[in-house]
Simulated scan of single mutants.
Amino acid sequence: MAQPQLQLPKGIIGIAAIAIIALIFLSKSTVTIGSGEAGVLYKTFGGGVVTDEPPLGEGFHIVAPWNKVYVYEVRKQELFEKMKVLSSNGLDIQLDASAWFKPRYNDLGKLHQEIGENYIQRIILPTIRSAARSVVGRYTPEQLYSSKRDAIQVEIYEETKKIIGNQYLELDEILIRDVTLPSTIKEAIERKLKQEQESLEYEFRLVTADKEAQKQRIEAQGKADANKILSASLTDKILQDKGIEATLKLAESPNSKVIVVGGGEDGLPLILGNN
């Protein structure tokens, strides 16, 4: 005996079909832009990439299902790169550098249209490498090792920014994290720097000793001049007066003594003690 078949009303089938189509349509028509991101809208039947309007910001968006949205990170990003470059005398130098960059927000559509999503490989990396080769090639290994690291950092940044700024990108900073020289060159530079330091210390000691000797000569000359002036100013009358002043002070002492006024050969008092 045949089992009766369950038949759904045609209206319910139609509603279900419409709901499924609407669900598919909706899933294809929505996009969520995450934190620190922005979306570039591509209109399939409306002129392609939208460049004359701001990109889609963070949050939920509904777009036509035949259009596309390309999502870009627009917060500050860091790119770390190890590069081998040549110094001014042709030696291999390894440079470790970091670049801080981000896409220019309002030009995101132009960036997508003219360069594309892989703009880091197409623009930023080649530009940094080219700038690094150009800048490092102006300096000797000794300059790179000791005094010029900050200078090359600034120069690489300026040369990179000049190109990247015209490509809808913002370059915030380039940091030189390490400069690695061949071991033999590094050791030779360190020996030279040590010798220069020792030479500077020796020169400093010589200068210090010379200044001390000059100081002592000046002090001795000052004392000699003072004694000369004092000797020239002392007369017999002054000496007698000084002797009398000293005698009076001694006379006030409680120790017993005998004072003979005018007993000395120069007319000064004689002081005779009790012993």
Rank of each mutant, 00 (worst) to 15 (best):
R191N: 14
L23I: 15
V136I: 09
Q94W: 01
A97R: 02
V74Q: 05
K211F: 03
F60T: 13
Q5A: 14
A38H: 07
S88F: 01
V135F: 00
T247D: 05
Y70N: 14
F101Y: 14
A99T: 05
I115R: 01
W100N: 06
P54R: 14
Q143E: 13
Q197M: 09
E81C: 00
K161T: 11
A232F: 02
S88D: 10
D172Y: 10
S87D: 12
K76L: 02
Q121A: 13
I18G: 13
D150P: 01
L193A: 13
L171T: 04
I244C: 00
P141A: 05
R149C: 02
A224T: 06
P9R: 15
E114R: 12
E219N: 13
L95C: 08
E142F: 03
E190I: 11
I15Y: 03
E58K: 14
K10V: 13
T127Y: 01
A2W: 03
L23S: 15
V49Y: 03
A232Y: 03
V74S: 01
Y105W: 14
I33H: 11
Y42H: 09
E265H: 12
D225M: 06
G57W: 02
E81M: 05
L171F: 05
Y70G: 10
Y72R: 11
Y119M: 02
L26T: 15
E158Y: 11
D241T: 09
R104W: 04
L270F: 06
I18C: 14
V31G: 05
R129H: 07
P4F: 03
E142S: 08
S147L: 06
L6S: 09
V74L: 03
V69M: 03
D241E: 11
D178K: 14
P182K: 08
A64Y: 13
Q7S: 08
I13Y: 01
I15F: 08
E265L: 14
Q143H: 02
A246E: 12
T208G: 01
G243N: 10
E187H: 00
F45G: 05
I33K: 12
S146D: 05
A131G: 04
E81D: 07
Q221H: 05
G57E: 05
P141H: 06
I123A: 13
R104G: 10
K257L: 09
D92A: 12
G36V: 12
T44D: 01
Q3S: 08
T184N: 13
N89E: 09
I152E: 01
Y139G: 08
G263M: 15
I229E: 10
A99P: 00
T51F: 01
S88N: 11
G222S: 12
K82S: 06
G39E: 02
M83Y: 00
G14C: 03
L86P: 03
Y72D: 07
V207G: 03
A131N: 09
A226F: 10
E201V: 00
